[in-house]
Design a protein around this nucleic acid. Sequence first.
DNA 1: AAATTTCGACTACCCGGGTCGTACTACCTG
DNA 2: CAGGTAGTACGACCCGGGTAGTCGAAATTT
Lengths: 130, 130
Amino acid sequence: MNDTRQHQLGDLQFAIMRVLWERREATASEVHAALLAERGLAPTTIATMLKKMEAKGVVDHRTEGRRFIYRPLVQEREVRRSMVRDLVSRLFQGDATALVNHLVTEKELDREEWLRLKAMLQEGEDQGNE
Amino acid sequence: MNDTRQHQLGDLQFAIMRVLWERREATASEVHAALLAERGLAPTTIATMLKKMEAKGVVDHRTEGRRFIYRPLVQEREVRRSMVRDLVSRLFQGDATALVNHLVTEKELDREEWLRLKAMLQEGEDQGNE
DNA sequence: AAATTTCGACTACCCGGGTCGTACTACCTG
DNA sequence: CAGGTAGTACGACCCGGGTAGTCGAAATTT
């Protein structure tokens, strides 16, 4: 039911979801308009993708007059969780700290980000125990 | 040339690479044997995959007698880097700290991992300057 | 030498993400 | 009312990851 596979989204699919998450619902052409700048896709491409995504169960639509109003069925949190989890399990055998370690040693974080990270950790000091 | 697309590996491909990285080279059947436990794949599947991967440029082979000895052409570091980078750019608009933040707030780290992470950060205190 | 195993080559699929072109239909507008 | 417009439906492809069967040649075994 709450299949985690539904949370694995391709690039375009994720971009479409971002639009849907931002606004809380949108028509195909609104999505198309929103993505036109970064990708130059045909309107039908978006429509087709939305249809496939609906079949997959990640979005839903309601008909209003002539047009379909799409609405996300999965939460951004869930998708991120599952995609990150997937990557961690593939690349780091499920060890999330190994990922952080990777970010640090591979200098994916610059000095400034590094500091922010430390601050964040300090802040969340009292979490995890209950 | 050093196409970053070559560093995007599928699940099986990554598993195969892990074997190749561990040993420094291996035949198709050695890889197959190594992966037989976790995945129950036919030997031909591995062979086909290796061929595809060679076409893609991530592995290489040398003939010894009549068997192919495969050797990785891309480094594990590079692949991890590029795959993590890709995910971060898709899911977090390139903000790596947002990923760490995600790990923390979504409780992807348990108490024990959390401590290790803090220790690691303390340890790496003097990095980031070059 | 004959039979059997081994291993690569080739081929064929399936599936899902992605990209559209075309067709059809309801609608609006001159 | 006719013609353009908007918006969905349908179907066609491409591509790459993944899975594997079959075939033929070479090596090994009996």
